[in-house]
């Protein structure tokens, strides 16, 4: 770095650049928030969906699965599990865990009530209807 580029200049560019790009992030965030109603499927945020999200969180599902591609990569993507498997399969699957097959990955038994299972399925249905720009590439997630 040449002698004409002083530390004071570097400092000013840092503060100016940071403030500018942080404000740009905030502006884009405002724009995103105003556009979300079109893509985030909020019309279907029923009490059952919210209860399902709570089940999803308090069973730490994200510790093995991904949801819209975020989470752990140990078990299948569940953002589109609703169209992939359908509600009855999902409930039957959760109820029948763990499989106990030797050497295979195991999912814990969470002893969910029928109501809780329905809520969880409602949450997964709502999630699958979020506009994700056509992600994932195919039904396998």
């Amino acid at each position: 770095m040449s002698g004409t580029f002083t530390k004071a200049m570097a400092r000013n560019i840092f503060y100016g650049g940071t403030v500018f790009f942080f404000l740009l992030l905030v502006a884009l965030t405002f724009d995103t928030m105003s556009g979300l109603p079109k893509s985030d499927n909020r019309a279907n945020l029923t009490p059952s969906v919210l209860a399902g999200k709570h089940i999803w969180e308090t069973r730490n599902c994200i510790g093995c699965h991904t949801l819209l591609g975020e989470g752990a990569y140990f078990a299948p993507e569940l953002g589109n599990v609703y169209p992939r498997r359908g509600p009855e399969f999902i409930k039957a699957w959760i109820k029948s865990q763990p499989t106990g097959a030797p050497g295979r990955r195991q999912m814990p038994q969470f002893n969910l009530t029928e109501q809780e299972l329905d809520d969880l399925v409602a949450f997964l249905k709502y999630t699958s209807e979020i506009n994700t720009q056509k992600w994932p590439p195919n039904i396998e997630g």
Partner: peptide, 20 residues
């Protein structure tokens, strides 16, 4: 400077497929 100028808006690489 380079870190924040690229990284702040770079947050956007997480906003591709989550309903944004």
């Amino acid at each position: 400077t380079l870190a924040l100028v690229t990284g702040l808006i770079g947050t956007g690489h997480h906003y591709f497929w989550i309903g944004t």
